[in-house]
């Protein structure tokens, strides 16, 4: 805790933080309120309360757009992508942290290089690669997400480094295989890190816009983020903003709920595993 703030400083901090927090929340309330209005009501005044709370826009958002199918795609993609990424990252980190072999350092270094060289230009070859391999679809996306050498690996790595090896040794003596030791003993011990990494990864995949926007060409098979963007583009051609607002609320609700439930876990995950210090 250390030294407490004096009254004026505390007041100033509270006021500023409240203003900031309000600016983060208020736009959603604005969108929420306007999502109950009719189109012409919205254009008359964007500030008034709706004449009546009716859910026409929500019904339209669900019916006229592919919202439900966006959700389906997003859910499937998020689950598969997250599971693969977490397992790949944990596996790689475990091997690099606990086994000594030639090339260990090299492989770890390979993962680190990605953090230090800002590669912004690989889009062209990626595009051509996807074209040549026909991976312009959800499978391509899953393959791209199934990486084991990213930030998540580094988080797991520092976590596994801290876990004592004695349990594993005991298991080895009992004749357990390498895989069994990893899967049944060591991986469960990294539970805290796994939960935090899983939540963060899931949120990232759920919210990812750029990769799906490039890879998913079928308008029926879009993620929520990309689908919303196309809805936004579509609004430029039929001007039913209030329907878009309803869609925004529908799309945001699940993440907000999950966040409220898991908020402590996320913070804790960063406290324990954390990014390396």
């Amino acid at each position: 805790m250390g030294r407490k703030f004096s009254k004026p400083v505390l007041l100033l901090a509270e006021v500023l933080l409240f203003a900031y927090a309000l600016s983060l929340i208020f736009p959603y309330i604005w969108v929420l309120i306007n999502s109950f209005k009719t189109v012409s009501e919205f254009y008359n005044s964007t500030w008034s309360l709706p004449e009546k709370f009716d859910f026409t826009n929500y019904a339209r958002a669900l019916k006229e757009t592919n919202m439900l199918s966006y959700f389906k795609t997003s859910i499937i993609l998020t689950i598969i992508g997250t599971v693969l990424q977490v397992i790949c990252s944990a596996g790689t980190a475990y091997i690099l942290a606990k086994y000594k072999f030639r090339g260990n350092k090299l492989i770890y270094g390979m993962a680190i290089v990605g953090f230090l060289i800002p590669t912004s230009g690989t889009l062209a070859p990626l595009y051509v690669f996807l074209k040549d391999t026909g991976l312009f679809n959800i499978y391509g996306l899953v393959v791209m997400y199934a990486t084991g050498m990213g930030t998540n690996m580094v988080i797991f790595y520092s976590f596994f480094k801290k876990i004592s090896w004695s349990y594993a040794e005991a298991a080895f003596i009992d004749g357990a295989s390498d895989f069994k030791v990893f899967w049944k003993i060591m991986f469960p011990m990294a539970r805290e890190a796994t939960i935090a990494v899983t939540i963060i990864t899931a949120i990232n995949i759920w919210n990812d816009y750029f990769l799906p926007s490039i890879l998913l060409t079928n308008p029926e098979l879009q993620t929520v983020a990309v689908g919303l963007r196309s809805l936004q583009v579509q609004q430029q051609y039929n001007a039913t903003w209030t329907v878009l607002f309803a869609a925004v609320i529908i799309a945001t609700l699940p993440t907000i709920l999950i966040y409220i439930i898991f908020q402590d876990r996320i913070a804790k995950g960063f406290l324990i595993g954390g990014l390396k210090e």
Partner: peptide, 14 residues
């Protein structure tokens, strides 16, 4: 597809 301007190229080229 409202987004066809963006999705058409990958569709046709791949």
């Amino acid at each position: 597809d409202a987004n066809l301007t963006e999705t058409l190229t990958p569709m046709i080229e791949s």
